[in-house]
Amino acid sequence: MKLRFLGKNSTPGDSPTLYASDQDSYVVQGWKIYARDLLARLEVPDGHTVVEVPTELFEHLVKDGVSTGKIKNFSAPIVLVTEEGTCVVQGPRMRDAEALSQMRMPDYETCVEVPKSSIVALMEGPTWT
């Protein structure tokens, strides 16, 4: 799988990143979730994982031709919006060695792959409040 870097939201020590793949998907790199109270609220199937990212990360979708990077519909693959306003994104755990070799990922981060159509659908519909 080949990745195309779309953007990242970085502060020292943090690097949530968004990539477009050649498989009609997006790869979302974000923080691993360790908080037990948060994990208890999620149902994560085998082979899947969750990452936490700032909502602003999706603004980089405009670099892939999406008309807006503003999320209007918080639904799967976004499974939760935290009290801090970050998104928890669920998807298959990235295992593609070629894709992983193209990424710089600290130990406290991981990534998921989600279909482009499911992310683009979040940009449509009524605005979430």
Rank of each mutant, 00 (worst) to 15 (best):
T55H: 09
I33Y: 08
V66A: 03
E124Y: 01
S15P: 09
E59Q: 14
V62N: 01
K63R: 10
V44M: 08
G69P: 07
V51C: 02
S67Y: 03
P115C: 10
H48R: 09
P126C: 09
P12V: 11
S75Q: 14
Y34V: 03
P115R: 11
I78T: 07
R36P: 00
M103D: 11
Y34R: 08
E84W: 13
D14H: 15
A40D: 15
Y34T: 05
M123A: 07
P45H: 00
M1T: 15
I33N: 04
K70S: 02
S117I: 14
S118V: 09
T82S: 09
T17P: 14
D96R: 01
L100E: 14
A76P: 13
L39I: 03
T11N: 04
T17H: 10
V27Y: 00
F5W: 11
W128K: 10
A20M: 11
M103C: 12
V88S: 02
K63P: 00
Y26P: 10
A76V: 08
W31A: 05
V53R: 02
L6E: 11
K116Y: 00
K63N: 12
S117W: 00
R95T: 15
G30D: 12
G69M: 06
P106C: 04
S118L: 09
T49L: 05
S75L: 11
L39S: 06
S75Y: 07
